[in-house]
Design a protein around this nucleic acid. Structure first.
Lengths: 257, 257
DNA sequence: CACATTGCTGACAGATTCTGTCAGGGTCTC
DNA sequence: GAGACCCTGACAGAATCTGTCAGCAATGTG
């Protein structure tokens, strides 16, 4: 077994067992106890907190209270965690917010740079705002998954959508739009879009959308500027402007060409 | 430089640069190009998707669209992310909730087993509920950090707290309690505690607490049962019972003694 | 087409590292 | 004090890694 793999397995064993003697670990891993000591030293050097108790009944064990753990995450999972953390930061602060900040930074840094721009764009496409405090009609709530999947497809492929929309007075109208982003203000979901016919940014409440369909003939390129213009307009979005400029600041922090 | 560290740095470089030639990497890392090829082969063997283009203008690059990223997180960061994800799951669902579920599972699995019980208890001590929809007085909001730190200390050490409390009618009284948990229903924070004098579980709104102090002489052991009894009482907590039984189910899933 | 550039693989000797063994010194419990 | 356990240093042999050389394949350019 290659040494790095043995180190990984050793760490794994330390994680999921209570307390183990070095002799036991050596036998399990097929090496001599001296090598186990060296490996433990290497793991400690890497920042893992491994404690050891001398005497009978002692042994080495993983000190979970401090130290780092390595988590293997899919990119979609990183994005979801990122959005969740931002949501809970904005809406209702949790304790240990310092840890939340550093965790967010690490999650962002873990995004690979090559395809990183698109992933950051995905993060930017979903803006999470504070919960709606003003009274909302009861029909609001989480949109059906089919609708979300349709939007996700339209986002990533860059194809326009057509649907029937009921405005505030209940007036039905046919719309064609390029979806550029989502805005979640629990429990209301909005689509940040550009109206194809009127050629201007618009915001649509998802619970007022019906009979959506893809318009394969109309293509567009994702444009964060549409989101920016929408969020900077007056209206109930004022508290979000600060958050949005944070996003923009991150975008300009130099690591992107 | 030790080889494992060099591999980590190589992966890092591949992540954050567009396309690099092997000769450039070799010069940067201070080894020969042949070694870089061997290292790239090792990384590929470990599952990292590294692509390469032959010919002029070619080079090796990181294929970030698929595959996993490794994130090194402090345990406090894992707990915070876990709480954030649970909060956003409960309050306002985000898109790609499947990714959120698997991310939560991975975060839970990454908690080391040795001290895992305490960490899970820490997770269980902070219960996140849906936002308060009924009208709340304006004084509610995030408690001051000193108060949070005081409670965190009382939690972990197991020492009782004394404070002045104003009930619904504004009547002031002196209380002594063992804090067992927090309940966040944005924007209101509650302390789940056991009243020392009346010897029964009670719930206190944090914004009505004043002049808190540690009572070093009164010690107690953290008891999740107090939280359970409080959450199962009637009142506005009904919607939380399902979530809580989820927690309890997880606790009994066998990996804990 | 020839040519330059780049990725990729095999072989082999020398340098480097790792491993096992031995020795010795601590700490804790009984 | 005896035993069980953690921990460290030294050293020779084994294993691995590294650099050099050679050669092949794929891609773009003149």
């Amino acid at each position: 077994m290659w040494r790095a793999d043995r180190l990984a397995e050793l760490l794994d064993r330390l994680r999921r067992t209570e307390t183990t003697t070095v002799a036991q670990l050596a036998e399990d891993l097929g090496v001599s106890p001296r090598t186990v000591y060296r490996d433990v030293a290497a793991l400690r050097h890497r920042g893992h907190a491994i404690q050891a108790d001398p005497g009978p009944g002692g042994g080495v064990r993983f000190d979970g209270t401090r130290g780092v753990t390595t988590v293997h995450l899919t990119l979609a999972e990183v994005v979801t965690l990122w959005l969740s953390a931002r949501l809970s930061q904005g809406a209702s602060d949790l304790p240990w917010s310092g840890a939340a900040d550093s965790a967010l930074a690490k999650l962002l840094a873990s995004l690979p740079h090559t395809k990183g721009r698109e992933l950051r764009a995905l993060c930017r496409r979903v803006v999470v705002g504070p919960p709606s405090s003003t009274g909302v009609s009861a029909s609001a709530g989480r949109p059906p998954p089919e609708l979300l999947r349709l939007f996700e497809h339209a986002f990533s492929v860059g194809v326009a959508l057509g649907f029937a929309y009921a405005d505030r007075m209940g007036q039905q109208s046919q719309r064609r739009m390029e979806p550029h982003g989502l805005l979640v203000r629990s429990p209301v979901w909005y689509v940040l879009a550009r109206d194809v016919d009127k050629a201007e940014p618009r915001m649509f409440r998802m619970d007022r959308i019906s009979r959506p369909r893809l318009l394969e003939t109309i293509r567009f390129r994702p444009d964060a500027g549409v989101i920016d213009r929408l969020m900077c307009a007056e209206g109930p979005w004022r508290p979000l402007i600060g958050e949005l400029s944070d996003w923009r600041g991150e975008r300009h922090q130099g690591r992107l060409p």
